[in-house]
């Protein structure tokens, strides 16, 4: 405990030990719940958008409890951009692969022309891929919205 206090005193006396410790305990559970919501999106309420917002909120929570610099250290801006683009690529790519397999855009059942699982199983897998793509994009876009709003677009400090 003494080491933890020294760690915080060295960094910035204005930052609060209690808030930061509770955020550090809380964030893994929030992220686990966000991933659960994304993965169970096609059985139960929830899905890519809601799970992505919860995942993004966990990173925003770290940005609120520490500061913008620490937040951008933990989840660098280049990774953020890469994650947003990866999610969009997964979404559009799934749709285009379905179109290439002989169906319509995002018509997952058509993938059974290539690999002979039944169309119902392909629809379940396809909706999961799309949900994962939406989740990635929403996570990173929520975090970058927070960065831009709290630092007025400068990305150098604030909140």
């Amino acid at each position: 405990m003494k080491r933890l206090q020294e760690h915080f005193e060295v960094h910035d006396p204005n930052l609060n030990l209690i808030i930061q410790t509770s955020i550090r305990i809380l964030v893994p559970f929030v992220q686990l719940f966000g991933l659960y919501v994304i993965v169970h999106g096609h059985y139960s309420p929830g899905g890519g958008f809601q799970g992505g917002v919860i995942l993004g909120a966990s990173f925003i929570l770290m940005g609120v409890g520490y500061d913008l610099k620490k937040s951008m250290e933990l989840f660098p801006e280049a990774w953020n951009i890469a994650m947003a683009n990866l999610g969009t690529t997964i979404f559009v790519g799934t749709g285009l692969v379905c179109a290439a397999a002989g169906g319509l855009f995002l018509d997952y059942g058509a993938l059974s022309n290539w690999i002979g699982i039944e169309p119902a199983a392909w629809r379940s897998l396809g909706i999961f891929a799309v949900e994962a793509g939406v989740g990635f994009t929403v996570t990173s876009v929520m975090l970058s919205l927070f960065w831009d709003l709290s630092s007025r677009g400068e990305l150098d400090g604030g909140l």
């Binding site: 929830g46 809601q50 919860i54 993004g56 927070f146």
Partner: peptide, 26 residues
């Protein structure tokens, strides 16, 4: 409408409040 309620709880109450507070800082 459980799905809409979920979206409202995560976006409306969670993220948009933080975004409002970030905007109020300016």
């Amino acid at each position: 409408a459980v799905d809409v309620a979920f979206t409202e709880a995560s976006v409306g109450a969670g993220v948009s409040t933080i975004l409002f507070i970030g905007a109020i800082l300016g």
